[in-house]
Design a protein around this nucleic acid. Structure first.
Length: 755
DNA sequence: GTGCCTGCTCACGGG
DNA sequence: GAGCAGGCAC
């Protein structure tokens, strides 16, 4: 028996169709990854295709890793030669080799959203744009959409003819690109757009990659935007061996430029394309799948298909209503605890999915309270944290002195007495001489207007030069640790006088960052700071989600795409939240269809058990909202559910009286509890503040030491108290330690002992 | 130049 | 509820 005998008829057909364009419409849970991996195996083992000629593109690193692993298991020899990666990292790899052809340096840095915002802000200020009328956010998204559509600043300007706002955006867009180029930086959208530009400008480069990638596969094709489509089209233009896999019903990234027409019109672009539909679902039980089908069929703009399963109907879809979000969270946590207690599932089998990241907080608080293990995926990206970005800015400056943004970020971190006035003067000089900000710093003595301030810049410049010379022979971990030590970053964090919990979180994050660097060094043969930095720029939280972890997953429905769980809780099923208010009031009906696809994605994540919850009242940005039950819940026929969904017209009092008994018991008095385990990216910072004030001193507490006394700290050793300041809830103590330098701390946390 | 306070605005999703 | 610009005191 061969490995292909386990496939169904359509799957097999897809696997055997190797030559020519192929559109694989793969419904949720229809085994598409299986098809893709088997197809690769078939190409290599049966068709004699050289693995070197195969390119497989996915959207997330996680999906790429998963495919890589499965291909490795299936294909014996040469599988490591297959190029499996995301759009963004594919482009980085190509650009690192050739972007000099477009006048960039191959060691470019990658700007994230925060970096973009800083640049845009600076431009708006300089151009005297009233950001109350034209928001930076709006400009950013306009530029991003332009790049998704491959519209250059010049074209944008031409299109803006007569439109005042667009003209302004055009001028910002143009300046933004100039600054990025001068900083030798690219943003996420540039990665794709510049690669397309490169291919169009340099046919020889394109030819090389066309001959290399004779067989191309693209996963999650419904989420590609125009630029990504063009990239793929160019690459496949010579051999036409392009297999795209997608599901128009799961297209949920329109806001990011995804063009659903790419999949709907595939056959127009490639008239000779084979189209194969995978409609048998292997994931969910009958009731869940039916519920999903019933919801999605309300969309008009979709390719006709209907998923079916051989599985039993299974449990009905659970529906629960609550008075408010707290009770909703309480129910979800207890329901999971109950299932785990009864041995029905483990924590790791459960996922709580919500529409917006803001909803995670209330759930998290409940999990902390109950001491249940959980893991928040997404939210604030680990690498976007202030302390991590500071260190990254040091590394970027060491690696690429042309990254002005990084230099400006750290020139006064820790405090070096360099303020805006000094920055402006240096920038002015840099502009005049047409050199980078960092190079201007090095020539500080030539900047007459600086006066005495020039002396304050000297230590920074000589320190950076030392780092750079060390970079030649230091590893990445060594470099990070050296930087932290030289700038005394821990001392700086302490001097910020933030809440103690917050400082501890930051220190923990730094430790985690160091270990990530160590892992990078262990897992890569060739270690380069540039590659390390670009790898970091491209990872998201979903990517680092551990599979074997026994904890409940909390994430947005967007993050959950491509994942499956036996127990799924879709919370906050309210009109106004999901679908979002923005969608309800939108005059574009396709917005609601996208929202419905999101509901479809959410429902189809569930294998055995799906629970939908609704809260009558919910706190949203500080105010209480009363929303009707989500229309998506109402689209599920009642015979598929275990509770009746009230019609919107019913009186509110009638609506909520059949809540399950479990949530009616008296409220537990909240106790500050340490999270069961804090691991994973989301959880670390988020639990901070729960214990807020718990250790604060009573008003009449008297310390047994005073100014001038010698004290001992558990970590810093002995030192002398320089200053003691009474604050409403605590004493602020400044201590000069013998070996650890000067620290400012709160008496209640520092637990100093008089010697 | 720095630190702190206040009041204002903004809030969907993410590589 | 949070982040940030702007104003103010030092």
């Amino acid at each position: 028996m061969s490995i292909y005998d386990t496939l169904n008829r359509e799957q097999k057909e897809a696997v055997l169709t190797v030559e020519g364009p192929l559109l694989l419409l793969a419904g949720a849970g229809s085994g598409k990854t299986r098809v893709l991996t088997h197809r690769i195996a078939y190409m290599i083992d049966e068709m004699g295709v050289n693995p070197w000629h195969i390119l497989a593109i996915t959207f997330t690193n996680k999906a790429a890793n998963e495919m890589r692993e499965r291909v490795d298991n299936l294909v014996g020899f040469g599988s490591e030669q297959i190029w499996v990666s995301t759009f963004h990292s594919t482009c980085v790899k190509i650009l690192r080799r050739h972007i000099d052809r477009l006048g960039f340096d191959n060691g470019f840095t990658i700007y994230d959203t925060d970096d973009q915002k800083t640049v845009i802000k600076e431009i708006c200020k300089r151009f005297q744009i009233d950001t109350k009328q034209l928001k930076e956010r709006a400009i950013m998204s306009a530029i991003s959409s332009a790049k998704d559509e491959l519209i250059s600043p010049l074209e944008y300007e031409i299109n803006a003819f007569g439109d005042f706002t667009k003209k302004k955006i055009a001028s910002v867009y143009k300046e933004y690109q100039t600054i990025l180029k001068r900083s030798n930086a690219l943003d996420f959208d540039d990665l794709i757009m510049k690669t397309v530009e490169l291919f169009k400008a340099c046919p020889d480069v394109l030819y090389n990659y066309q001959e290399r990638f004779k067989y191309i596969m693209v996963d999650e094709y419904q989420d590609t935007n125009t630029a990504q489509f063009e990239l793929i089209r160019l690459l496949a233009d010579r051999h036409h061996n392009l297999c795209v896999v997608g599901d128009d019903d799961q297209s949920i990234y329109k806001f990011r430029g995804a063009n659903i027409r790419n999949i709907l019109d595939y056959e127009k672009v490639y008239p000779e394309a084979r189209v194969i539909k995978l409609e048998q679902n292997y994931r969910s039980t009958g009731n869940i799948l039916n519920a999903a089908n019933q919801v999605i069929k309300n969309n008009k703009g979709r390719k006709a298909k209907s998923l079916w399963t051989e599985k039993d109907a299974g449990a009905k879809v659970h529906y629960r209503q609550f008075d408010n979000g707290y009770e909703e969270a309480e129910f979800v946590a207890e329901d999971i605890a109950r299932k785990v207690r009864k041995g029905e599932c483990g924590y790791g089998d459960c996922a709580i999915l919500y529409r917006t990241n803001a909803q995670s907080r209330i759930m998290e608080e409940r999990f902390v309270l109950e001491g249940m293990p959980y893991n928040i995926v997404g939210g604030v990206n680990f690498y976007a944290r202030q302390e991590i970005k500071d260190i990254l800015a040091y590394l970027k400056t060491i690696d690429n002195g042309r990254d002005d943004l990084a230099v400006k970020r750290i020139i006064n971190v820790p405090k070096r007495g360099v303020g805006n006035a000094t920055l402006d003067k240096v920038q002015e000089y840099a502009d005049m001489r047409n050199i980078s900000f960092y190079d201007a710093l090095r020539e500080k003595d030539q900047i007459v207007s600086l006066g005495k301030a020039a002396a304050k810049l000297e230590p920074f410049v000589s320190m950076m030069q030392t780092f750079r010379s060390k970079a030649q022979y230091y590893g990445i971990q060594d470099m990070i640790e050296d930087v932290l030590e030289v700038i005394d970053y821990k001392g700086y964090l302490n001097s910020l006088n933030e809440e103690d919990e917050k400082t501890e979180d930051r220190l923990r994050n730094i430790d985690e960052f160091i270990s990530k660097a160590a892992i990078y060094e262990q897992t890569h043969d060739e270690i380069s700071l540039t590659d390390f930095l670009s790898e970091i720029a491209l990872v998201s939280d979903v990517d680092s989600m551990e599979d074997a972890d026994e904890r409940v997953r909390l994430m947005t429905i967007h993050s959950a795409k491509g994942l499956e769980f036996t127990q799924v809780y879709l919370v906050g099923m309210e009109d106004g939240l999901f679908p979002s208010y923005m969608t309800i009031v939108s005059d574009d009906p396709t917005d609601m269809e996208e929202e419905r696809r999101l509901a479809y994605v959410g429902i189809t994540r569930a294998m055995e058990d799906l629970t939908l919850t609704y809260a009558k009242a919910r706190m949203v940005r500080g105010e209480t909202q009363y929303n009707p039950v989500s229309r998506f819940v109402r689209e599920i026929p009642s015979e598929l559910m275990d509770n009746t969904v009230p019609t919107v017209k019913r009186r509110e009092e009638d609506v909520f009286d059949f809540r399950p008994k479990a949530v009616l018991k008296p409220k537990i008095t909240p106790q500050p509890v340490k999270p069961f385990i804090t691991q994973g990216i989301g959880s670390l910072n988020r639990v901070a503040g729960i214990n807020k004030g718990a250790a604060a001193l009573e008003a009449d507490t008297v310390l047994d030491y005073t100014e001038g006394d010698r004290v001992r700290h558990v970590k810093y050793g002995e030192g002398k108290v320089l200053k003691l300041e009474r604050e409403p809830r605590d004493y602020k103590v400044t201590v000069q330690f013998d070996n650890a330098g000067q620290k400012i701390m709160y008496a209640s946390f520092a637990k100093l002992k008089r010697v």
